[in-house]
Design a binder for these strands. Structure first.
Lengths: 238, 238
DNA sequence: CGCACTCTTGACCGCACTCAACGTTGGTGG
DNA sequence: CCACCAACGTTGAGTGCGGTCAAGAGTGCG
């Protein structure tokens, strides 16, 4: 997932984008195939380089997106620069659906990334037409809420060791089935720190500790191999 | 809100409960009045004393609830007893809607509390019949998700002073319009600590600091009067 | 009055932060 | 090709904020 080229299916401006629709929305498995052309006519693609922002907290939220390739980080900033990353998105995820006037977080590409854009008003129209789509989105939002609550436990009560272990275990659990070999960590140490409520140094030290304890292996900065899964689960806490 | 008696409308077991339906569900402002009798026939009331649990994390989630009176705290526990409160609910709020097999948090009464119960399957049937209800719930879930992300910023990046100030300011902001006088803090210092990711002692010390700095006044353990709102907003951070 | 419980206050401690130095890597230009 | 530089990550030394432990004050209840 690191710095690889993207298929050029998605134009960079307002071009129609059938593939985006298919890859972004059809994952809902609720949009029947004969409706895809209409969907495609509504969607526009956009590609983002590493570090490019899709939108910023406070921007008027008149578009919603589905991530079709790459990875996005969602974060909130304080005025003095302190940052909290509230989530990493993977292909198939939605964003921008907050029911307010503005986005409540910023979104930035972790790796080269492709998204699909819908005008908010059009998207809300879709919900009217296809109740199953609304049900799907409610389900996803509920799942995200549960994940956010789990993260609140991590941020409020876990030690640095427990946080890093939880992070690795969660990555492993979320990985698509069938994938094998070491886990990819596309994000920087700074991103991990801002996701776990720690500093870069503490994250780095903790990775090193785990390596020395032979809980994990670190063949590369952006690769983690879990060596002793049970012990790592143990460290992650309940 | 502290320890007052509840109206005896709601039976304690499986009795029908029209008032619960009205007060709990009609706040959605989407259920037309002529459908209320059917709704009432589905709802059962339950009352909880202080400290009683409505359900625990891991229980099979075959009921959903609306809070009609009082206050509930939702929390997650670690095996060694560390606790993170993920939210306080007020009348009109829903809970138990997580789209999984089991509840992902425990729910316990902060003060004498009344809830309305629906069998999950029946409630899902309601969603089918009244799409507006589903839309309302999606809106609420999105709002809660945004609140959870705001809390992640607090737990991950804010200092103790900032956390306590944010807590007071958020309470003031969420209070029903028109209410006047000091804010009520129905929950204990331990609850506040577990909500803010701090210890009882730090919460207590910080309240005292704010009082000495004349940012707030503390006429009672469970009352806070904001004296200098602007400065408190300042301390709460952005 | 005595007991239990909550909250407050003080003294001390330790985990994670801060500051600093160094190693590694990748890109750029001479 | 190598020299240079910037960005990122690692490691070490010291510090400080919030946690821990302990004692005492305030409150409600039987």
């Amino acid at each position: 997932m690191v710095a690889r080229a993207l298929p050029a299916t998605c134009g960079n401006s307002g071009t129609l984008c059938e593939e985006c629709s298919v890859r972004g929305l059809a994952v809902c498995s609720v949009v029947s195939l004969n409706q895809l052309p209409r969907l495609a006519a509504m969607a526009a693609g956009r590609r983002l380089e590493i570090g490019q922002t899709l939108f910023q907290e406070g921007d008027t939220a008149d578009e919603v997106f589905t991530l079709t390739d790459g990875m996005l980080k969602l974060y909130k900033l304080m005025s003095d620069g302190r940052r909290q990353i509230v989530g990493f998105l993977v292909p198939g995820d939605f964003l921008g659906l907050a029911f307010g006037r503005t986005y409540v977080y910023s979104a930035e590409a972790v790796v080269p990334t492709a998204v699909c854009r819908f005008r908010r008003s059009q998207f809300l129209g879709l919900l009217e037409e296809w109740p199953h789509l609304e049900k799907e989105i409610l389900g996803r939002t509920s799942t995200e809420l549960a994940a956010a609550q789990e993260q609140m436990l991590l941020l409020g009560r876990k030690t640095a060791r427990e946080r890093v272990a939880s992070f690795i275990v969660a990555l492993a659990r979320r990985r698509k089935l069938g994938a094998d070999g070491p886990l990819e960590l596309p994000m920087s140490r700074a991103d991990i720190a801002d996701y776990l409520g720690l500093t870069i140094e503490t994250v780095s030290r903790t990775f090193t500790m785990f390596r020395k304890e032979r809980l994990i292996d670190l063949p590369d900065k952006h690769l983690v191999e879990i060596v002793r899964r049970d012990e790592l689960d143990q460290v992650a806490g309940v």
